[in-house]
Amino acid sequence: MVTIRMARGGSKKRPFYKIVVTDSRKPRDSGYIERLGFFNPRATGQEVRLELKQDRVDHWIKEGAQLSTRIATLLKESAKAAA
């Protein structure tokens, strides 16, 4: 099954996540099909916290990709911010 989830990057105690489309059987940080954006939980001030290619997210959802629980929460958050 194809899943939209986060792959961790950054350094120790300074997480940075890529939002990716990947096969659900692959390990968290291994290869992915497509990168859809990023999430920076430690963003402050003018730094961007969440960036998504919404058209590509919609495309993958229509193709049957499942969302992780955290990604579903972030999508709701970004929809509220856009409205």
Rank of each mutant, 00 (worst) to 15 (best):
Val21Asn: 05
Val2Cys: 00
Pro27Leu: 06
Arg70Asp: 10
Phe16Arg: 09
Lys12Tyr: 13
Gln46Val: 06
Arg35Gln: 15
Thr73Leu: 10
Pro15Gly: 08
Glu51Tyr: 09
His59Glu: 12
Arg14Gln: 14
Thr22Pro: 03
Gly64Tyr: 10
Tyr32Glu: 12
Leu75Pro: 04
Arg35Val: 09
Asp23Lys: 13
Tyr17Asn: 02
Arg42Asn: 15
Asp29Leu: 13
Tyr32Trp: 15
Thr73Tyr: 12
Glu77Gln: 13
Thr22Trp: 00
Glu77Gly: 02
Gln54Leu: 09
Ile19Tyr: 05
Arg5Val: 04
Ile61Val: 12
Gly9Lys: 09
Ser30His: 12
Thr3Ala: 10
Lys18Gly: 02
Gln54Pro: 00
Gly31Glu: 15
Ala65Ser: 08
Met6Tyr: 08
Arg42Phe: 10
Thr44Gly: 10
Gly10Gln: 11
Val48Glu: 14
Gln66Ser: 13
Arg42Pro: 00
Arg25Tyr: 11
Phe16Val: 12
Lys13Tyr: 10
Gln54Ala: 07
Lys12Leu: 09
Leu74Ala: 06
Ile19Arg: 01
Pro41Lys: 07
Lys18Trp: 09
Lys26Tyr: 13
Arg14Tyr: 11
Val20Ile: 15
Arg8Leu: 11
Ile61Arg: 15
Ala7Lys: 13
Ala72Thr: 07
Gln46Glu: 15
Gly10Ala: 09
Thr22Ile: 11
Ala82Ser: 12
Pro15Phe: 04
Thr69Arg: 14
Ala43Ser: 14
Leu74Trp: 06
Thr73Met: 13
Ser68Thr: 15
Ala65Pro: 07
Met1Ile: 08
Asp55Ile: 00
Lys53Tyr: 03
Thr69Ile: 09
Gln66Val: 09
Lys12Asn: 13
Asn40Ala: 11
Thr3Tyr: 07
Glu77Asp: 13
Phe16Pro: 06
Val2Gln: 11
Lys62Tyr: 02
His59Met: 08
Ile4Ser: 01
Asp58Ser: 13
Asp55Glu: 14
Ala79His: 06
Leu67Val: 01
Tyr17Ser: 08
Thr3Phe: 00
Ile71Ser: 00
Phe39Gly: 01
Ser30Met: 10
Lys13Val: 00
Ser11Trp: 02
Ser30Glu: 15
Gly45Lys: 13
Leu74Glu: 04
Asn40Cys: 05
Ile61Pro: 00
Leu67Ile: 05
Gly45Asn: 04
Leu50Gln: 07
Lys12Trp: 03
Val21His: 07
Thr22Leu: 03
Met6Gln: 12
Leu75Phe: 04
Lys12Ala: 09
Leu36Asn: 06
Arg5Glu: 05
Thr44Pro: 00
Leu67Tyr: 01
Lys53Gln: 14
Trp60Ile: 02
Glu34Pro: 03
Asn40Leu: 04
Glu47Met: 11
Lys53Ile: 08
Ser24Gly: 14
Gly64Gln: 03
Gly64Asp: 02
Arg35Ile: 09
Glu51Gly: 05
Glu63Thr: 00
Gly37Glu: 07
Val20Arg: 04
Ala43Arg: 06
Lys12Ser: 13
Arg42Tyr: 10
Ile19Thr: 10
Tyr17Trp: 06
Arg14Asn: 15
Asn40Asp: 13
Glu63Cys: 11
Met1Tyr: 11
